[in-house]
Design a protein around this nucleic acid. Sequence first.
DNA 1: GCATGATTGCTATATAATATAGCAATAATA
DNA 2: TATTATTGCTATATTATATAGCAATCATGC
Lengths: 154, 154
Amino acid sequence: MRNNSKPRQILDTVNPLEPYLGYHLRRISAASMASLTLLLNELDIRPSEATVILFVQATPGVRQSLIGKHLGIRRANMAPLIAGLESKSLCRKEALDGRSSGIQLTKAGVKCAAKIEVKIRENEERCFGQLTVRDRKALMKIISTINLELISLE
Amino acid sequence: MRNNSKPRQILDTVNPLEPYLGYHLRRISAASMASLTLLLNELDIRPSEATVILFVQATPGVRQSLIGKHLGIRRANMAPLIAGLESKSLCRKEALDGRSSGIQLTKAGVKCAAKIEVKIRENEERCFGQLTVRDRKALMKIISTINLELISLE
DNA sequence: GCATGATTGCTATATAATATAGCAATAATA
DNA sequence: TATTATTGCTATATTATATAGCAATCATGC
């Protein structure tokens, strides 16, 4: 007799999505982002804002079109994102020419960037600390070879 | 002279998000999902619907609470999702008891499931065909060891 | 058998990320 | 200078996902 207990419903079928890399990456990414969102809530910062802040810190004076190109955020979505950071006094614009501005972090923005980095590192530990160092390195090596442009259909 | 061309703006700074696994997984997941979304559009199916359809196919008569537990979809979001599939005549409910139903695919649902599988496999090739077989296997091995429950904070 | 608590499905609602279409101003180019 | 490309932006829509709360039903301990 294989099973003489009688739970209401058991799942003796394997999840049919298991064989797909895309499925696993989606689930892991979603969990990791949800976790990061909670951590960043304490700073009143959303994940997409966090990536922009860190990018601007590393590349002061960058124009927002370039931020978007590197982070995969469209112009139309970049505009309100930057406006939101300005309204929180985390960044400011300085005119480069008649239409573009260079984005700079304010002092508050720099402080915030430091806190964001701490949160991101904390999240990396929360999410990937369960992997061995060897696996983390192997994972990083493999995924950083993936060329996103070969995937996107723009 | 290191650079005598004069592009308006070049980025000689490394993307500061590069060191983070979570960042790469997010970008890859987003690209892969966007690609899959386009492929599934031809079937008038969204990715979350696709996962539910394949899960129901593999586990006929499953109740929706269980689907959600396995796929990471909350009860509140499961309800309209199933209702949508019913309205497309892709699945139907059969009462298990006074409050729960077993979800079954209709004939159209089974046909749709087969098409979904083709699209998903096509997408896997599109997204991960650029990796060596060795890397794909290594990637699958590592990410399938990640325990999502250790990440989620519910 | 009955009171209590857990489960299940559901509605309403909110938010984050992301998508398209189109506009106006400016810059780059032939 | 005329044309095209770039840039920033608004408005809007969609998908996925989140919380709060409700009502019906089921399971459990007494």
